[in-house]
């Protein structure tokens, strides 16, 4: 486990800001507690400072996880968000889409969000920006990238894809083997 280099931090924050925009400042200081980013192997963890300090006494080969895993660095040094980042992103989300009950299961099985499944959508979502997907009861379901702007969505066909899925909570079951170190 180590701190992120400046470059890595930049990559991570750029990625995160795609989903939570200006709220990113709230990530670091949350309710008076300092939160930090730590990298262990290729995974990036978001964890309170106190716990990160305690974790320093665990040897690298033996440390499997701490706090919340945000995602991992690929071999090409890109940062990829994991579904586990959802609980960090969801409360701070800038752009949201709520899917109806009939769209929940298709989304959780790994499909994109169709226009017909959208119950609500926040205003002024630009094209190709990060979007958080919720159920109608405000249960965070996953995240993705908008395929169309809000304005376009309103005039789209019912079967048009509006949000490209990137990650959904179904992955907890589907990808358990690869998702966690």
């Amino acid at each position: 486990m180590r701190q992120l280099t400046e470059e890595e931090t930049k990559i991570v924050f750029e990625k995160l800001s795609g989903y939570i925009g200006q709220n990113i400042s709230q990530l670091v200081n949350r309710s008076g507690e300092q939160f930090v980013l730590r990298i262990q192997k290729d995974r990036v963890y978001y964890v309170s400072d106190a716990i990160a300090r305690l974790a320093t006494s665990v040897a690298r080969p033996n440390l499997l996880s701490l706090g919340t895993c945000l995602g991992k660095f690929t071999k090409t040094n890109k940062f990829r968000l994991h579904i586990t980042a959802l609980q960090v992103l969801a409360p701070l989300a800038a752009n949201k889409v709520w899917v109806k009950a009939n769209g929940e299961m298709p989304f959780l099985y790994g499909n994109h969000v169709l226009k017909a499944h959208i119950g609500r959508i926040s205003d002024d979502i630009p094209e190709h920006t990060g979007v958080l997907v919720f159920s109608m009861s405000d249960l965070p379901l996953g995240f993705g990238v908008s395929a169309k702007s809000t304005a376009e969505v309103r005039h789209a066909q019912p079967n048009a894809i509006t949000v490209f899925r990137q990650s959904d909570i179904g992955e907890f079951l589907r990808d358990e083997d690869s998702l966690f170190a």
Partner: peptide, 28 residues
């Protein structure tokens, strides 16, 4: 693995997951 999955799924952010022989935990 399933431990980490459950911890993340249930949103427990105060955990540190380690992989030791518990008999040696006194050293950690």
């Amino acid at each position: 693995k399933s431990l980490i999955a459950n911890i993340h799924r249930l949103g427990c952010t105060n955990t540190i997951v380690t992989n030791y022989d518990a008999r040696e935990y006194g050293k950690v």
